[in-house]
Computed example of a mutant assay.
Amino acid sequence: MMDEMNVTNEVIEETAAAPVETMDDYAGEIDSSMRSINVGDILEGTVVGFTDTEVTVDLQYAAEGIIRAQDYSAEPGFSIKENVHAGDTVKAVVVKLDDGNGNILLNRRQASEALAWEKFEQQLEDKETIDVTVKEAVKGGVVTYIDGVRAFIPASKLALDYVEDLNTFVGQTIPVRIIQAEREGKKLILSSRDVLRERRAEAKAARIAAIQEGAVLDGKVDSLQTYGAFISLGDRIDGLVHISQITNTKRLKHPKEMLNVGDEVKVKVIGVKDGKISLSMKALEEVPESAKPAARERDRDREHGREREEKIEIPKSEKLTTSLGDLLKGIKLN
C-alpha cells in the first residue's frame, strides 16, 4: 500500500513540475497558419519531403507548399535526390493558391531570381569577391550559376594570361567579381581576372615589403635607361640601380658603358619606399681610401644633377706689356 502511495506521489510531483501548455504557446503557429497568402508573395519554408518530380515544403500554414522539379532550379545537372535535403530552408514565390490537391503551388526559381538580382546589384556596388564553379564552356567564354541565375565569364576575363582551351576550366571553382548586372536583360557578367590581378599585386607588395634594406641580392639586368639600370630580382620584382650607383671607378654617361641587358649582377638594397626598390652595385665595390672623398663628391654632384666643373688656373705674368726695345733687344743690324 505504501509503495502505491509513493508512486502516486511521484507522479503528482512530476505532473506539478512539468510546464503547463496554454494557447499562448501556439499563438505564433496559429497566427502563421491563419495569415493571408496571395499569388506573388515570397514565402519561406522547410523541406519536409520530396520525390523525383516535386518537393514538399512546410510553410507553417493550413496547406503545404509544392515545388515542381523544373521550378526548383535552372542549373544544368540539377537533381532533386542529389541536391535537395529534408530540413533545407527555401524561399519560393506563390504561383497558385491551390494546385488542385489542396496544396499551394510555389516556384523557387522565380523567387531566387527576384532576390538574387537585388543581391547582385549590391555585390556589384561593393566589388565583392565570390567563388563560383564553372559549369560549361561556350563560345567566347564559360558559364556558371549564382543563386540559380546564369552568369557569363568572357574568356578575356577568365585568367591573367591567354586561355587556349576553355574546357580546362569546367568544374573548377574560381574567385570572381560581378562587373555587369542588368536585371531587365538578365545579363550577369563576371570577371576572375580582376580579382587575380588584385591578389597578385597584393602578393607582390607583401614580397617587396619583406625585402630588407642592406640585403645583398642576385639579379639580372632587365633594361637600360639613361638614368640607370632596371634589375630583375625574380618573382616579378625589380629594382633600379641609378647611374650614380653603378660604379666608383669612373663617371658614366650611360649605363651601357658597363652593363648589358641580360648581365647577371649582385646588388645591395639601399632603399625601399612606396613599393620601389633602390639598388646599388658600387656599394659592393672595394674602393681605395684615397679615392673615397672624390667618389663621395661625385655622388653629390650626380644627385644634384650637375657635373663638376674643372678649375683651370692661368699662371700670373710678371709683366703684362712688352716694350719695343725688349722686342729688338739682341738683334744685330748690318
Rank of each mutant, 00 (worst) to 15 (best):
D98Q: 10
V272M: 06
D147W: 12
D98P: 10
K139M: 08
I30H: 08
D238K: 07
Q110Y: 12
A92R: 09
A201T: 13
H85I: 00
E136N: 10
V20T: 13
Q122N: 08
V90C: 03
S112N: 15
E289T: 11
E64G: 14
Y72S: 04
F50W: 13
L160D: 11
V39I: 15
E54K: 11
S244N: 03
T129H: 02
F169N: 03
R68K: 13
A92C: 08
D24C: 07
V269C: 02
R296L: 11
V55G: 02
K127L: 03
S33F: 03
K119Q: 10
V216I: 14
A116Y: 05
Y61G: 08
R200K: 14
E44A: 14
Q245N: 06
Q123K: 12
D126R: 11
E309T: 14
L105E: 13
L166P: 08
A116K: 08
D235Q: 03
D218K: 02
E184T: 14
G148C: 13
D98V: 07
V149Q: 07
D41S: 11
I153A: 11
A229H: 02
K119R: 13
N167Y: 06
A294I: 13
A215L: 09
A151Y: 11
A111M: 10
A111D: 12
D235W: 00
I211C: 04
E118K: 11
V90L: 04
M34W: 05
E184S: 12
T168H: 03
K186W: 12
H85M: 00
E29I: 15
S232I: 00
